[in-house]
Design a protein around this nucleic acid. Structure first.
Lengths: 161, 161
DNA sequence: CTTTCAACCGGAACATTATTCCACCATGCG
DNA sequence: CGCATGGTGGAATAATGTTCCGGTTGAAAG
């Protein structure tokens, strides 16, 4: 399903990344195209997986999850399945919003969301640090998240895999 | 606008966080309520800012942004406006998807999305490292993002600020 | 240069969904 | 009790999404 994104695709994606509830008619207008064409493009972008979904983005403070923690995890000497094991364990914790496998001296970077420091402490001792193979965890509180967007910087002519 | 989220709110938010294109009728059914009530709840959640928006989430690989870099930035001894200055500069780079101000020995953590290593190198030398006051940047490539969700772990009874 | 074909386009018809309206019911209070 | 208040959900209406179809374009073949 190799396919380039043309200018119209990019225009549509740009708008949908900002507000997925925009009526197709309005997107069509702003992108200088017609309802039908825009509708078909969106379908194609959904089918090919370029658009992974349309979701509601919440304010984490307003739902009582005011504390964001960034944790760097270093594993003990890598036994064969210590790493996959860690990933599987982490996947089961809903507090973990993101988990990156990094190159370098840290193995994993986690983004964690909890209601309070106490709650994090609990999570840290009872869950995170108990995963097998974890050697060292260094946690930092994110004091402010100045930039936080789901909006990707698009350009025309890039390939969809 | 202090207000607790009740069980119905949480149920609705849970569904909308997964798929914001769900028809209200279906949400109502799954949440054991009526169209009208669910509609009003959603409106309220939008008005109070609990729901920040509905957006399309894209697959960054399929739009040609296959390389994700996590950068830790340390600033030189903090002059009065070096930090705000950095934040303002970073906001202007669309490649920077997230920027956290951390406590501890690193000042900022950035999540950056580019098309290739070369592109990052360019970005690094020509943009990031040129911001005033930057002392040290350590960049790691995110080899895989095992967990990546916009879905917050909700519980009943938390307060909206 | 003409013909053919396939793919795309966009207006209009139709289907689905969101939004508003309203009559009804429960509850608290004089 | 009788009356306000706020919430409920069915039904009417408005808005939006989806399909249909005839027309147009552009490329390849004759």
């Amino acid at each position: 399903m190799d396919q380039e994104l043309d200018a119209l695709d990019v225009r549509i994606l740009d708008l949908l990344q900002r507000d997925a509830s925009l009526p197709i008619a309005e997107i069509a207008e702003q992108a200088a195209s017609s309802r039908t064409v825009v509708w078909r493009r969106i379908q194609r972008l959904l089918d090919t997986g370029v658009i992974r979904g349309r979701v509601a983005v919440l304010d984490h403070r307003k739902v009582g999850l005011g504390v964001m923690v960034i944790s760097h995890v270093k594993m003990a000497r890598h036994g064969r399945d210590v790493l996959p094991n860690f990933l599987a364990a982490v996947k089961l914790f809903p507090q973990v919003i993101e988990c990156h496998t990094l190159m370098g001296d840290v193995d994993f970077l986690l983004k964690i969301l909890v209601g309070s420091i106490e709650e994090y402490e609990q999570f840290f001792w009872q869950k995170l640090s108990k995963i097998e193979g974890v050697q060292e965890i260094s946690s930092s509180i994110s004091m402010s998240q100045t930039v936080n967007t789901t909006r990707l910087p698009l350009r025309v002519g890039r390939v969809k895999e």
